[in-house]
C-alpha cells in the first residue's frame, strides 16, 4: 500500500494498550504471538455461519440427527467437528408452526461461536440486548420479519455456559434437496431467529 504523506507512525491509545498487554503476557509466557495470529485467522476466515447451516441442513435431512440435536445439541454439533472453545453447552431450539424462537444475550454478548462465528454488531449493541426481551415482535419487524399474531415468540437469553442455536423450519418445495443445497437457504440471522429460512428461488 502506498502513502503519499510522510508523517510518523501513530498508535491510538487502545492499540497501544493492547501492545502493552501483549508485551507483558508474552514476557510471562502466558501467550505466544504466533498462536494469537492463528486464533485471529481462524475467527476471521474459518469459523462462521456456514458451520451452523450445515448442522441445520443435516437436521432437516436426517430425523435421527434432528432427534439427537434436540436431546444433546453439544454432542450432535461436536460430531461434525464444531467444538466450542469455551466449553459451553449448546441447546438447539426448533421453530414450529406454533412457536418462533429468538436468541439474545442480555448480559453481554454470549453467542454460539463454534457454529455461527463472531456475532454481528447489532447483536452486541444495547438496543437489541434490551429490546429483544421486552418487544420481540417489534424487533423482528425491524428485521423485516412480521409473524402472524397467533404465533408465539420464545426468547432465549444466552449465558457463558449455555448458548442457543435456532433451527428454522424447512421451507416448502425442497423435497429431495441435498444437504449442501439446503444449507444455502439458511442464513446467520435465521439461526439467531431474526429471520426465517429463505424460500427456494
Amino acid at each position: 500500500m502506498s502513502h503519499d504523506h510522510d508523517h510518523d507512525n501513530e498508535l491510538d491509545p487502545f492499540a497501544a494498550r493492547v501492545r502493552a498487554l501483549e508485551t507483558i503476557l508474552t514476557e510471562k509466557g502466558l501467550i505466544d504471538p504466533a498462536a494469537i495470529d492463528v486464533i485471529v485467522d481462524t475467527y476471521e476466515t474459518k469459523i462462521g455461519p456456514r458451520n451452523g447451516a450445515r448442522v441445520v441442513a443435516k437436521a432437516w435431512s436426517d430425523p435421527a440427527y434432528a432427534d439427537w440435536l434436540k436431546r444433546d445439541a453439544t454432542a450432535a454439533i461436536e460430531s461434525l467437528s464444531y467444538t466450542g472453545r469455551q466449553g459451553e453447552h449448546m441447546q438447539a431450539v426448533f421453530n414450529t408452526e406454533e412457536t418462533h424462537n429468538l436468541v439474545v444475550c442480555t448480559l453481554c454478548s454470549c453467542y454460539p461461536w463454534s457454529v455461527l462465528g463472531l456475532p454481528p454488531v447489532w447483536y452486541k449493541a444495547p438496543p437489541y440486548r434490551s429490546r429483544a426481551v421486552i418487544d420481540p415482535r417489534g424487533v423482528l419487524e425491524e428485521f423485516g420479519l412480521t409473524l402472524p399474531a397467533e404465533k408465539k415468540i420464545r426468547v432465549w437469553d444466552s449465558t457463558a455456559e449455555l448458548r442457543y442455536l435456532v433451527v428454522p423450519m424447512r421451507p416448502q418445495n425442497t423435497e429431495g434437496w441435498s444437504e449442501e443445497q439446503l444449507a444455502e437457504l439458511i442464513s446467520r440471522d435465521a439461526m439467531i431467529g431474526t429471520a426465517v429460512a429463505k424460500a427456494p428461488a
Binding site: 491510538d12 486464533i39 476471521e44 447489532w122 449493541a125
Partner: peptide
C-alpha cells in the same frame, strides 16, 4: 434503533482482533 446490519468485517481494527485472540 437497532444498528444497520451492514456486512461489517468481524473486526474493524487490528487491535480488536488481538484483544479478542489474547
Amino acid at each position: 434503533a437497532l444498528p444497520d446490519d451492514i456486512d461489517e468485517p468481524v473486526f474493524s481494527e487490528p487491535w480488536q482482533a488481538e484483544a479478542f485472540a489474547m
